[in-house]
Design a protein around this nucleic acid. Structure first.
Lengths: 241, 241
DNA sequence: GCCCTGCGATTAATCAGATAAATCCGATTA
DNA sequence: TAATCGGATTTATCTGATTAATCGCAGGGC
């Protein structure tokens, strides 16, 4: 696999189309045999770990291995993790890409939303509002933020687009958590979400798209850069910060 | 690393920021030690293979290992390889994404082109024309096609965008080679390239963008679906087809 | 008849260690 | 000076052993 920079008997084997998602794969000892891969345990396991990191195979001790559905997200997530490790400024660049992608596929995604989807989005908004309006303990609705935006693209049948968006929100959880925890700012953001949803419901996708554009520009240039201390664990690494 | 689906001492170690691109990493035996990773050879090598597949480390026998610049391309390329292995129809979906991305970042990329870049693009075009006009043996200028489009985005400082585009052209080489080898069609495509370049030179990026849009739609719905047999080796896998 | 327990088979997980191959660097030599 | 050789370093690959997780079946208690 010249262009892949890796030569992996296992990856070639999996790419051969011999198996479909859900299929059980041969055991490691079987794979070692000359008639399959013809490499040692350690080599198989090295390549297996690569396949696992891509979300291609699910492997559990005692149970064997299964081929999983291919998904774009794991690879992007992995790459993005290191992009952020090398330079957190990369998040801005990825955000820019994300904004353009959502804008480009906006209408295509919106027309696929049915009544149930809109109801789910409204419920998501209500939960976000409740978190913000809790007088005792204001919580930042990051989970709802993710849910809202991914919800819009729920039915888009382009795994590359949805994969990039999912990876974006993983990274968002990881590094943006509590970052712009300004009450007025968050209220404004969710006002925009309300307008977006309202416009979608009215079938005016273009207006919704415009609200989205303004909303992301707000995110990029937040009114106050009041950065609160980040406590708790890092959502991407699971390591306490 | 909860969200990464992998827990890798090595990846955490590399992400810790202890090393910069170009730095030599500790040897495998050193990494094994309790004071660094505290895992066995095979485990180190499994995780090393993942890092290598992402293009994060360069490892050569007898020389040791170096941390490389982070790049988005390897991860995307790897994921895309399997996307195509599972279903070649995925290429269409990725093409769609690619078109939108190029459109979205078009102007931003064009303003960064200087005289040398334009000259290089013109040279690229001339070479493509020469291949097409060779009366003895018409060659399909896939290499020039790649060079032309990537050349437009050469100076764009967004590694995610350029990474996705590079991966696209790798896949294009792999599965589209000689696919639409229709002479008139290719002439039309390169006519569009000429118009794109002319418009860029005139500073009319919007017109150039429109030419690009038409050109990609031509690609998506080629006038004749005359599919010629694919011979030679698969550019992605290096395996003869 | 049903549930619980425990045993054995299967399979992945991890480790230790040996050998081979690649590379580098300094000493030797013509 | 330049070419060559040899040893040290480091990765590459393999073998085999032990541990841990899971499953399925048989047996026993109710």
């Amino acid at each position: 696999m010249a262009r892949l920079d890796i030569d992996s008997e296992l990856l070639e084997f999996l790419a051969s189309g011999r198996f479909r998602p859900g299929d059980r794969l041969p055991t490691i000892s079987e794979l070692q045999g000359e008639e399959l891969l013809g490499i040692s345990t350690s080599k198989v396991r090295e390549q297996l770990e690569v396949a696992r990191s891509l979300g291609l195979v699910e492997v559990r001790a005692g149970m064997g291995m299964r081929l999983r559905d291919w998904r774009f997200t794991p690879a992007v997530r992995l790459a993005l993790f290191f992009a952020l490790a090398m330079d957190e400024g990369n998040f801005e660049l990825f955000s820019e890409l994300r904004q353009h992608i959502e804008l480009a596929f906006w209408d295509e995604a919106c027309v696929l939303l049915d009544e149930d989807d809109l109801a789910a989005l409204e419920d998501c908004m209500a939960r976000a509002r409740a978190k913000l309006d809790d007088e005792e303990w204001i919580q930042i609705p990051n989970q709802e933020h993710r849910e809202f935006h991914l919800g819009i693209f729920r039915h888009l049948q382009n795994p590359f687009v949805t994969g990039l968006l999912e990876a974006y929100w993983d990274a968002y959880d990881a590094i943006e958590i509590n970052r712009y925890a300004d009450y007025d700012y968050l209220q404004t953001v969710w006002d925009y979400h309300g307008r977006i949803l309202k416009a979608i419901r009215a079938g005016d996708f273009e207006a919704a798209r415009e609200h989205f554009r303004k909303h992301t520009e707000l995110l990029r240039y937040p009114p106050r850069r009041q950065r609160v201390s980040v406590t708790g664990e890092n959502a991407l690494t699971g390591v306490a910060g």
